[in-house]
Amino acid sequence: ASGEGPPEAGAAGGTEDALSLEEILRLYNQPINEEQAWAVCYQCCGSLRAAAARRRQPRRRVRSAEQIRIWRDGAVTLAPAAGDEGEPPPTAGKLGYSQCTETEVIESLGIIIYKALDYGLKENEERELSPPLEQLIDHMANTIEADGSNDEGYEAADEGLEDEEDEKRKISAIRSYRDVMKLCAAHLPTESEAPNHYQAVCRALFAETMELHTFLTKIK
């Protein structure tokens, strides 16, 4: 219905094709692990980037883990928030619905991913994250302050033009979904394995959650 992936799925029940991150957190009643955080970031930015290229949806902030949907095949998409339900007509201009910048979407995604890592912890407790993941989230959540600019639409233009200097400075400014994906890929021993690896992590997250749900249902 959202145009962002396969048909919407309901709550965990055994035959669904997608689970929300919120459902996963509630079912396990514990935070996601670091590898899952890297994977959800990478996969979600991948789908957002693809959707942006197709211009199939307005940019929306991520308001809750309920919006982040992990699909059976390992894809991760962003569903509309309750208040954003219903696509605007194709001809609707900026006045037709609230748009936001790519950096704002990334910022909101970073915040929600952090909250998923922090799930269940008390207010006076803080999870010790590995420095690279903390740095990723820190930069995602502070992107707008990074350099005060909100460059948009340059990602296709600079495709393939990065050099080592770009690689070195990338951590200082996350401005696009692609920047996030590059950082996530750099976290792996072999960057080229990022698409397969992160898809497999999300596929496993879905499968294990469904397995747990089935088990708990049987116990009940």
Binding site: E34, E107, I111, K115, L121, E125, E126, E128
Partner: peptide
């Protein structure tokens, strides 16, 4: 299954949790 352990420390005023909280 598939879940790793993690360390918990006291929340720090300059830590990422505090920074994220300020944003929300």
């Amino acid at each position: 299954k598939g879940k790793s352990l993690y360390k918990i420390k006291p929340r720090h005023d300059s830590g990422i949790k505090a920074k994220i909280s300020m944003k929300t």
